[in-house]
Simulated scan of single mutants.
Amino acid sequence: MDDLGDLNAFLAVARAGGFRDGARAAGASASGLSDAVRRLEARLGVRLLNRTTRSVVPTEAGRRLLERLGPALGEVEAALDAARGDRDRPAGTLRLNVPISASRLVLPRLVPPFLAAYPGIRLEVIAEDGFVDVLAAGCDAGIRYDERLEGDMIAIPIGPRVQRFATAASPDYLRRHGCPDHPRDLLRHACLRGRFPSGAMPPWEFERGGEAVRVDPTGPLLVSLGGATDLAVEAAVAGTGIITLFEDWLRPHLDAGALEPVLEAWWPAFSGPFLYYPGRRLVPAPLRAFIDFVRARESGPG
């Protein structure tokens, strides 16, 4: 960069025909330009300007350099202007690592308007429920719930701020087996369970009036959470058993009457997800655009 500055100094002096006029054109001092030209000549080992008290004229070597330097520095400035323009017209690829629930329940209302607003951005979403290091996986950012956020990351809210786990079963199942009155009654029912890729099978948690209950029921179907969750939902609709899942995931079936709420007074609430990314000073333009878009949507009406 020092070389580039000295080259610009030489260009200003040679075009203006003097150090004072060159300094006015470049917004610098005449002595500063003189020092820069001397440094450049010392590095190249040739005289570039013939200086007298009345004029400053390029030498033969200076003229040859001037002829090639002008277009070259013009290209450099054009490239820098293009880079600066990315701040206003973000372009490139944005890679997000998200849980499958977020790809289904959070991103659908954000992705289409975001891509419409930024046609130069290509969004790549990797949806998986295993816990991964987003940077090691080559992603720019991720979506996680607060219990799985890393401490050295910046996190901003994305999606519903309060969510619930809902428990439900089909009308046919409840007609045949009855409706549980307490979470512990689930131990006598056919329950459709899920297991994380790590092998962990989370218990079902309930709370009401300060009382928290955790149960570990059994049933005829165990699915991989995320990839095979819809299979469990369809089994519940078909009357195979009782399911616990994100309320928003089950809501269409609840509204249609294909599933009925079970133990609704016990449904636990939890905070919504966060978009998180490394706390570095210069955030890539596509990610900065997505962050600003999410913040605007979250702070807007509704």
Rank of each mutant, 00 (worst) to 15 (best):
A16F: 00
L245E: 00
V125Y: 05
A256F: 04
L245M: 05
G227H: 09
A127L: 04
T229R: 01
G178H: 09
D172S: 08
R144S: 05
P220K: 06
P108K: 04
L49R: 03
A14S: 05
A16Q: 01
A256M: 04
E298H: 13
A265N: 09
L4S: 14
V76Q: 06
Y277H: 04
L40V: 03
L259Q: 00
A137N: 12
P268Q: 00
A136V: 15
I121L: 07
G300T: 08
P119Q: 08
G27A: 05
G74A: 10
A26M: 07
R295C: 12
E264G: 12
D88P: 10
D255Q: 04
G272E: 01
I121F: 03
R51P: 03
V76H: 02
P112G: 06
C139A: 10
F206M: 01
F290P: 08
L186P: 00
R51V: 14
P180T: 03
G22P: 09
D129H: 04
F10R: 05
G32D: 09
R54M: 15
R43F: 05
F270N: 01
I158H: 06
D292Y: 07
A285Q: 13
L94D: 07
L33W: 01
V13T: 06
A228C: 07
T218C: 12
G18L: 06
G272L: 05
G18S: 05
D21H: 14
G199P: 05
I154H: 08
P203R: 05
T93Y: 13
G257P: 04
R251N: 09
D248M: 10
N8Q: 13
G219F: 00
G22M: 08
H177D: 12
W249N: 09
P261K: 03
S101V: 03
S103H: 09
P286I: 02
D185Q: 05
L80K: 15
Y173Q: 09
C179W: 14
T218Q: 10
R148V: 15
G226Y: 01
L192C: 00
E150S: 04
E147L: 12
G22Y: 02
R288A: 13
E147C: 11
L73A: 07
L221Y: 06
T244F: 00
L73E: 07
L222Q: 06
G74S: 08
I100C: 06
T240E: 11
V111N: 07
A82S: 14
P58L: 01
L186E: 00
A236C: 02
G32W: 02
G194N: 04
A155C: 03
R89I: 08
A25L: 08
Y277L: 02
W249V: 11
D81S: 12
S170I: 01
D129N: 08
F293I: 08
D255Y: 07
D2W: 14
L107G: 02
M153T: 13
A265F: 06
G302W: 05
E75H: 13
L174K: 04
S271M: 09
P284C: 08
